[in-house]
Every structure is written in C-alpha cells, then in structure tokens.
Design a protein around this nucleic acid. Sequence first.
DNA 1: CGCGCCTTTGATGTCGATCAACCTACGTGG
DNA 2: CCACGTAGGTTGATCGACATCAAAGGCGCG
Lengths: 250, 250
Amino acid sequence: MALLDTVVMRGLSSQGALSPEDKALLLGLELSPRQMSASEVLWLESADADLFCVVKEGWAYSYRNLKNGSKQILKFYLPGDIIGIRDFGFTRRLASAVMINEGVIYPFSYQQLFELFGRSNLAVGIMATAIRQQALLSERLIYLGKYAAHEQLAHFLYEIYLRLKRIGAVEDNSFLMPLTQELISDALGMSPVHVSRTFSMLREEGLVIRDRQHVQLPDPEALARLVEFNDSYIDEFLPPTFSELLRATP
Amino acid sequence: MALLDTVVMRGLSSQGALSPEDKALLLGLELSPRQMSASEVLWLESADADLFCVVKEGWAYSYRNLKNGSKQILKFYLPGDIIGIRDFGFTRRLASAVMINEGVIYPFSYQQLFELFGRSNLAVGIMATAIRQQALLSERLIYLGKYAAHEQLAHFLYEIYLRLKRIGAVEDNSFLMPLTQELISDALGMSPVHVSRTFSMLREEGLVIRDRQHVQLPDPEALARLVEFNDSYIDEFLPPTFSELLRATP
DNA sequence: CGCGCCTTTGATGTCGATCAACCTACGTGG
DNA sequence: CCACGTAGGTTGATCGACATCAAAGGCGCG
C-alpha cells in the first residue's frame, strides 16, 4: 500500500513498466499510516534526515526560514506526492516540512528505499519522482525571476489545478485549496497584501474566482495561454521509450 | 573515464562506497570525448531527450526563453557536473543547454544509464547527483524570492566559489569566471545595469574584486556570513550512514 | 587604428513593499 | 443569543528598490 499510490508509480504501472515482482516488492513494504493534525510538523530544518513520507490525505509544504523573519515556501505537497526526496543524500534536512490541514501520511525509511534500489525498475521510478520535483522547482524559479505578480499567481494556480486534476480532485473546473494568502505569498515571494490585490485583478479579468478555500478557474485554457504553460512536466509520467527499455533490461 | 570524474562519483569512491565491480562498470562505459567551441549548443528546449553530458573542461549553462524576449538561466555547469539530468524521465528537453567557453564534454546515453541502474550502488550515486542539483536550485529559488540584489549576487558568487574550490580551481581566494554581467543578470533575474551597480557596491565594501573574468573574494568568510551560507549542500558528498548501508546491501 | 563587446554612470519611471485602518467570517465564553 | 476575540482578507497612501532609457568610457581583436 501507499508507495504504489504515488503519482509516478501509478504512471509506471499503467505503462506496464513494473513487473509482478516489482509490485510485490512495493506492496511488501508494509507501510503503516500515521494520522496528522493541522500544522503538525513533519521535521525541522537541519534535523537528521532518515525517511520519506507519502502523502495520503491532506496538504503539506516545505519551507526555509529567512534572516528577515519571513519564510520561503519551496513546495506544496498534495496527496500522492512524496515529501523528503530533496534531502535524500544529505545527512540533515535542508528545509522544514509541515502539514497544512489534517491528513494521513505513510513514512518509510531510507533503508527501505535501498532495498527497492536492488530492482532497477524501481530505482528509475524513484529517480523519476525526484526529477519531477526538480522540474516543478525550475518552473517556479523561472516565474520568480522575471514575471509580473499576476503572471506568477496565474502560473501557480494553474500548476495546482493540473496537479489536482491528475489525482481527480477537480470538478467543474473548481477545487479546494486549503491555502491562506499568506502561505501563497511565502511561496511566491511577495507580500500578502499584494497577493490579495493580484487575486482581485485576476477576478476582474474573469480568470479566477476564489472564495476562501474554493477556487474556480472558469477558463483554464485562457489561464494556460497567459502563462504559456507547458504541461508536459506535470502530465507526462514516463516517456514511452522508457517502458520499452525497462522491459528489455533484465 | 569521465563518469568517474563526476563530482559525486568521486565522493562516493573516496568513501569506499563503490565496489571494484562498480568502478569497472563505470570505466567500462567507454565514453568518447567531444570538443566543444564557445557558444556551441548542446541541445535546444523541447528537443528529444536521450542523453547526458559530463563536463570535462569549460563552462556551460541551461536556460529557458521567456515571452518577453529575455531568458532565465537555470544553472551554470562547471567541470565535473552532469548536464541533462533534469530532463531524465521526460521525452523532451525542458531547457536549452549551451557552452559558454570552449571545452570538452563526454556524452552518454540513457540506455547506458539503465545498465548502471542494475547496480544499486550506482543508482544511488546518480540519484544523489540529481538531488544535489535540486538543492542548488532550491537555494537559488530562496534567494530570488525575498532577498535584495546585493545579497543575491553575493550568494551567487559564493556558490560558484565553493563549487570551484572543491574541484581545485580556486587559488588565493581568486578564480576565473567566464561570465558576462548579462549572463549573471539572466541567472539572477535582474537587469544587467543593476548587476554592474551591485558589483560596485560589493567592491566598495571590500567583499568582491572583479576584473573581467578574474574574481577575487578577499574575505570569503565575511561573504558567507552575509548570505548565511549553509555549505553542506555543496561540500557534503554522501552521509556516512549511506556508505555503510551501501556496503551492507548486496 | 577603429570597430564591437562589455561595463559604467546618470536620469527618470514603476511595480510592489510597507504601514495602517477597516471589514468579514467564525469560534468561544458569558 | 449576543459580546467579543482572532485570523484572514480588502483597500488606501506613501516609499523605495530596481527597471528602463540613454550616453559615454575601457578593452580586446581584426
């Protein structure tokens, strides 16, 4: 359970890239769920790094505290995401991780991952997960660099929209987003007030309707055009050629 | 040759985490060098992704073109770095990659990587490389978010300094940096003029002396303090516990 | 020597930060 | 059931960091 629920593993599986033994190995991990309350801390920056977490229910985020007292959010984690991959290969956490609302997570240790690495196909899956995270980070970086606030926010919302859509959490172009404007401001590196103004701007243009946690994108395509969104880095699981290579390699 | 020259693999090797067979496998890859001229393109955004490149000599960078005509540089690659890991797991390149000055690279295909994945220890090494890149990206993201121009530039220079130092390319606190201010501006998301002004500011404070490609940091520690640099994400190769786990796992 | 690339310096404009007040929804306890 | 407190959100006024435009000063190279 749980690791197979991961976004990437589901993709691998649906492409027939996982052998029965691979699946058995994943299932054999025997992860035990842990109930988390809102704002509960998974770990703090520079704590010892020794495990990952698969998010089953709820949202979480990772962040770093800054000198000036504010913080920079690196990523929001939705159900199906793996938290902690960033720190794999380091002795200590590079960022803190905290739940946003209540939820359920499945922790699993580095040691368990090592066992999976014995099977090359799974190594590829884990690797792909890590790379995908990096892709999300790159996109954010690009938008932080030279884009105006409304473009950043639009891009951010569209990313969330796509990620929720692929786990079936979007209906009628609307979804639940348990984020305060302050959290969003910490992610986009702007002030909370400006996030508010920017939401107003997008509302007036008919692109985003938001009431507390309810968000609706009346015309997602228009939004995508505004931000020139290249969805491949979210929609794609693994390239077709990979599945072939994986089946070919013993 | 070449893959063993990689920063991470050298780290792994020095910790005794690579078995003789691992090393043999790496050496057996038989990579052939390719001479590159300045500004030569490795690949363009959305080209088919099918290989990596180990940088042997010279500098390179990856970037994305933006709507407004400018570009965002994602990363500068120095000798010992691997270019293209970001795209592994995607069918197409997420960013273009270009040489800065002339140099030598060793291309190797995805297929060759798959063969390495059969050996779990090597999978871990590759994985660690990818994660490390992500860490660099995270740091940049943090600095783009809420920091002033002089802090960003200081952070950028100190990162380059550390990376060059670990490959032995720093002498007397000074090094060669074949970057124009325009390239730096594209990386930091600010205007070229402001990069110039910011360099002046750092010079007046006695933190950075720059003449064309020659950069000297009279007091690296002062710079590190200014940016609260946490070098673990560059200095560290693999945590000691990893080496144990790797030796333990068959 | 003279052309181009890189860099520097000055003047002006603007996007978003900051400070501050107010408003709304919601939960708590009297 | 209402009074109140608190967290989140909106709106206005002011200010500053950086962008942009423009011109001029090195430095290397053909």
